[in-house]
Simulated scan of single mutants.
Amino acid sequence: MTATDAPTTPTPTGPVPAGPDGTSLATRLRSLNVGSVLVEGRALVALVLIIAVFAVLSDNYLDPGNLVTITKQVAFNAIIALGMLMVILNGGIDLSVGSTVGLTGAVAGNLFRGIDMPLTQAIMFPKVWVIVVLSVAVGALVGYLNGLLISRLRLAPFIVTLGMLYVGRGLTEVLLDGQNITNELRGQEGLGNTGFFEVFASRPLGLPISAWVMVALAVLASILLVRSPFGRWLYASGSNERAAELSGVPVTQVKTRIYVIAGVCAGIVGVLQIANISSATADLGQFYELNAIAAVVIGGAALSGGRGTVKGTIIGAFVIGFLANGLVIVGVSPFWQQVITGAVIILAVAVDQIQQIAQRRGAAKRAVAEARTAAAGAA
C-alpha cells in the first residue's frame, strides 16, 4: 500500500479515554507495542542477553579469535538452517541433512582418492572444482529423492527423511569402510588436483570462507523468498496447501524443490567441513539436523508452516552458536550443555505458541467487539 492510497485515520482531538484500571489508552498501546516488539524480536533479545552474560563471566568470550571461531561454527549450522527454513515454511521437516553432510564428505574424499575406470587399470583424478560440483550434486540428489517421495507419493516427510537419514549414514560407512580420509584431500601436484584447502579453508579479510558462503546464501535465500514468485508460492502452500493448489500454485513442484535446496545446502556444508577438519569421517554431520531445526524455530518460524524469515533463522543460528561456545568457555559440563540447549529450544517453541494463542484470542475479542458495535449501530 502506497502513501497515496493509504486510508486516513481521524486523529482524536479530545482527551484519550482511560481503561478500566485507570491507565490511559495511549499508555496501554505503548506497553502493547513494547511487548509485541520483545516477542517478535525474541531471538535478537536472547542473543544480546547471551553475549552480555558470558562477556561478564569470561574475559575471553569477546576475544576476536574466539568470535571468528564462533562465526565459523555458526556458518555451518546457518547454511543448513537456510535449507531447513524452506522445508519448514512448507510445513515439512528434513531429518536427513546431517547424514547428507557426512555422505557428501565421504564422496568428496573418495573422489580425491581417484576413480577406478571400468575395463581398464587406469585411475582418474578429477579437478578440485569437479569434486566440489559432484559432491554438492550428491546432496541435491538426496534432496530430490526426498522431495519426490514426499510430493509424488504423498509420504510423510518425517518418515521419508528419517529413513534417508539411515540410508545416508549407511552409505557413508560403506564409502569410508571404517577409515578416515585425510592425506588424499591435499591432492598431488602432478595430477593438478591441489588447492582444496587453500580455497575452502582460507580466511578472506580475516573471516573463514564458510562465513562468506553463509552471507551469500542468506542474500540469495532472502531474494528467493521475498522477490520471486517461488517465495510467494512457498508461503502460500505452507499456510494452506489446498487453498494454494486451488489458486494455481504448483504445490508439487514447490515441495520437490525445497528438499533439493535443503540437500544442496547440506552438500555445501559437507565440502566446507572436510576442509575445516582436514578429513572425511563417518560421524561428520551428526546432530546437524537438530541444530538446524532449533535455529529455525528460535528464529521465529512456525513448525506448522507459512511463517519464518531468513533474518530470524540466521539470528537463531547465532543464538545456538554463542550459547554453546559460552557454556564451553565457562566450563559447563557437556551433559548440562545439552540440557540447557534443549531447554532454550523448548522455551522458544513455548513462546511461539503463547504468541499464537494471544493473537487468536485478540482476533476473537476484536471480532466480538466489532459485532457488538455493528449490532448497536443497527439498533
Rank of each mutant, 00 (worst) to 15 (best):
L155N: 06
L191G: 03
L246C: 06
N193H: 10
S222E: 12
E245C: 06
A244T: 08
G231W: 03
T194N: 07
S247D: 09
S222Y: 14
N193T: 08
S228N: 11
A236G: 07
G170Q: 08
L207I: 08
R227C: 11
V174K: 11
I258F: 01
G195L: 12
I277S: 05
L207T: 04
G170P: 04
Q179C: 03
V160Q: 05
V271R: 00
E289G: 00
A275K: 05
G178K: 09
G170R: 03
A218D: 04
E189G: 12
G195H: 10
N240P: 02
V167C: 07
A201E: 07
L272N: 06
F200R: 01
F230N: 05
A216G: 13
N193S: 12
M164K: 04
V264S: 00
T252Y: 06
E184Y: 02
A201I: 03
F158W: 10
L284F: 04
A211T: 15
N240R: 11
A275W: 04
F158D: 09
S237L: 15
G187S: 09
L234H: 03
I181K: 02
P250K: 06
A275R: 00
E289L: 01
A292P: 00
R169E: 06
A201Y: 01
C265E: 02
G263A: 10
R227S: 15
L205W: 13
A201R: 09
L162M: 12
A282D: 15
G187V: 06
L234I: 07
L220W: 07
L220C: 13
G170K: 04
R242H: 09
Q188C: 04
D283Q: 14
L246R: 14
I277E: 07
L246W: 10
S210Y: 01
R169L: 07
E173M: 14
L171H: 05
L272S: 08
P250Y: 05
G178D: 13
R186V: 14
G248F: 05
K255C: 06
Q273A: 05
I181E: 03
V271S: 01
I258P: 00
A243G: 10
N183H: 11
L185M: 08
D283T: 15
G190Y: 11
T194P: 05
G267S: 09
A243N: 08
A282H: 07
L153F: 14
